[in-house]
Amino acid sequence: ATVHVKGVTYHFDNPEQAEKFAKRMAKELNGEVHVDGNTWHVD
């Protein structure tokens, strides 16, 4: 799974980790999470 945060890409072997990371980053950055298959975007 892949997480894109403000133009930076993070790779996770575990999709659950990717989801938790994306949601945590969105919270910290006051952003929104969008999911597209195995790819998470934090804007």
Rank of each mutant, 00 (worst) to 15 (best):
A1S: 09
A1R: 05
A1L: 06
A1P: 11
A1C: 11
A1Q: 08
A1N: 07
A1T: 08
A1W: 15
A1D: 04
A1I: 13
T2R: 11
T2A: 08
T2S: 10
T2Y: 14
T2M: 11
T2L: 10
T2G: 03
T2F: 14
T2I: 12
T2K: 12
V3N: 00
V3L: 02
V3Q: 00
V3M: 01
V3K: 00
V3C: 04
V3H: 00
V3F: 01
H4K: 12
H4F: 13
H4T: 14
H4E: 08
H4I: 15
H4N: 10
H4Q: 11
H4L: 14
H4M: 13
H4P: 00
H4V: 15
V5Y: 07
V5E: 01
V5T: 03
V5H: 04
V5G: 02
V5F: 07
V5A: 05
V5M: 06
V5D: 01
K6L: 15
K6F: 15
K6C: 15
K6I: 07
K6P: 03
K6M: 15
K6Y: 12
K6R: 13
G7W: 05
G7E: 05
G7H: 05
G7I: 02
G7S: 05
G7N: 07
G7V: 02
V8Y: 10
V8L: 11
V8Q: 11
V8T: 09
V8N: 08
V8G: 05
V8P: 00
V8E: 09
T9P: 06
T9Y: 10
T9W: 12
T9S: 09
T9G: 04
T9E: 08
T9N: 06
T9R: 08
T9A: 11
T9M: 11
Y10V: 04
Y10E: 01
Y10K: 02
Y10F: 09
Y10W: 07
Y10D: 00
Y10G: 00
Y10L: 04
Y10M: 03
H11G: 04
H11R: 09
H11N: 07
H11K: 09
H11E: 06
H11S: 07
H11Q: 08
H11A: 07
F12V: 01
F12I: 01
F12R: 00
F12W: 03
F12Y: 03
F12E: 00
F12P: 00
F12M: 03
F12K: 00
F12Q: 00
F12S: 00
F12T: 00
D13G: 07
D13Q: 10
D13R: 08
D13C: 10
D13Y: 07
D13W: 07
D13E: 12
N14T: 14
N14I: 07
N14R: 08
N14K: 08
N14S: 14
N14Y: 09
N14F: 09
N14A: 07
N14Q: 08
N14W: 07
P15V: 12
P15E: 08
P15L: 11
P15T: 10
P15Q: 11
P15Y: 12
P15N: 14
P15H: 11
E16Y: 10
E16S: 10
E16I: 11
E16W: 11
E16D: 12
E16C: 11
E16M: 10
E16L: 11
E16F: 10
E16Q: 11
E16N: 08
E16V: 11
Q17P: 03
Q17V: 09
Q17I: 08
Q17F: 07
Q17K: 10
Q17M: 12
Q17Y: 07
Q17S: 12
A18L: 01
A18W: 01
A18G: 04
A18D: 00
A18Y: 01
A18H: 00
A18P: 00
A18S: 01
A18N: 00
A18T: 00
A18M: 01
E19A: 09
E19C: 09
E19R: 07
E19T: 04
E19S: 06
E19K: 07
E19D: 06
E19Q: 06
K20V: 11
K20C: 08
K20Y: 10
K20Q: 13
K20L: 13
K20F: 10
K20H: 10
K20I: 13
K20S: 12
K20P: 03
K20E: 14
F21E: 03
F21Q: 01
F21D: 00
F21G: 00
F21S: 01
F21H: 02
F21A: 03
F21W: 06
F21R: 00
F21M: 03
F21V: 03
A22Q: 01
A22D: 00
A22L: 02
A22F: 02
A22K: 01
A22V: 03
A22H: 00
A22M: 02
A22R: 02
A22P: 00
A22C: 03
A22E: 00
K23E: 10
K23Q: 12
K23S: 07
K23M: 14
K23V: 11
K23C: 12
K23D: 06
K23I: 13
K23H: 13
R24I: 09
R24G: 06
R24F: 13
R24C: 08
R24N: 08
R24W: 13
R24M: 14
R24P: 00
R24V: 07
M25H: 03
M25K: 07
M25G: 01
M25Q: 05
M25T: 05
M25D: 00
A26S: 05
A26C: 06
A26P: 00
A26N: 02
A26W: 03
A26T: 03
A26V: 04
A26H: 02
A26R: 03
A26K: 03
K27V: 10
K27E: 12
K27F: 13
K27Y: 13
K27S: 10
K27R: 11
K27D: 10
K27L: 13
K27T: 09
K27Q: 12
E28I: 12
E28G: 04
E28A: 11
E28S: 07
E28Q: 11
E28D: 07
E28Y: 10
E28H: 08
E28V: 11
E28M: 12
E28K: 12
L29A: 04
L29T: 06
L29S: 05
L29E: 03
L29W: 05
L29F: 07
L29K: 03
L29D: 03
N30Q: 09
N30L: 06
N30M: 08
N30V: 05
N30T: 05
N30E: 07
N30F: 07
G31H: 04
G31Y: 09
G31E: 04
G31A: 14
G31W: 09
G31P: 01
G31V: 11
G31M: 15
G31K: 05
E32Y: 14
E32F: 14
E32D: 11
E32I: 15
E32G: 07
E32H: 15
E32Q: 14
E32T: 15
E32C: 15
E32L: 13
E32A: 12
V33P: 05
V33N: 02
V33D: 02
V33S: 05
V33E: 03
V33F: 09
V33I: 14
V33Y: 13
V33K: 02
V33R: 02
V33Q: 03
V33A: 13
H34I: 09
H34G: 04
H34D: 04
H34E: 05
H34Q: 06
H34L: 07
H34S: 10
H34P: 01
H34Y: 13
H34C: 11
H34T: 12
H34N: 06
V35C: 08
V35Y: 14
V35H: 13
V35F: 15
V35T: 08
V35N: 12
V35W: 14
V35A: 08
V35I: 08
V35Q: 15
D36F: 13
D36Y: 13
D36K: 12
D36I: 15
D36M: 12
D36W: 12
D36E: 13
G37E: 05
G37N: 06
G37D: 05
G37S: 04
G37H: 05
G37A: 04
G37Q: 05
G37K: 05
G37W: 03
G37R: 05
G37M: 04
G37C: 04
N38V: 06
N38M: 10
N38R: 06
N38L: 10
N38T: 10
N38W: 09
N38S: 07
N38E: 05
N38Y: 09
N38H: 08
N38F: 10
N38G: 06
T39R: 13
T39L: 06
T39M: 11
T39E: 13
T39K: 12
W40N: 01
W40G: 01
W40V: 03
W40I: 06
W40Q: 02
W40L: 05
W40D: 01
W40K: 01
W40H: 03
W40E: 01
W40C: 04
H41T: 14
H41V: 15
H41F: 15
H41C: 12
H41Y: 15
H41L: 11
V42M: 02
V42Y: 02
V42I: 09
V42G: 02
V42D: 02
V42K: 01
V42E: 01
V42H: 01
V42P: 02
V42W: 02
V42Q: 01
D43M: 15
D43C: 15
D43G: 11
D43F: 15
D43Q: 14
D43P: 04
D43S: 15
D43R: 14
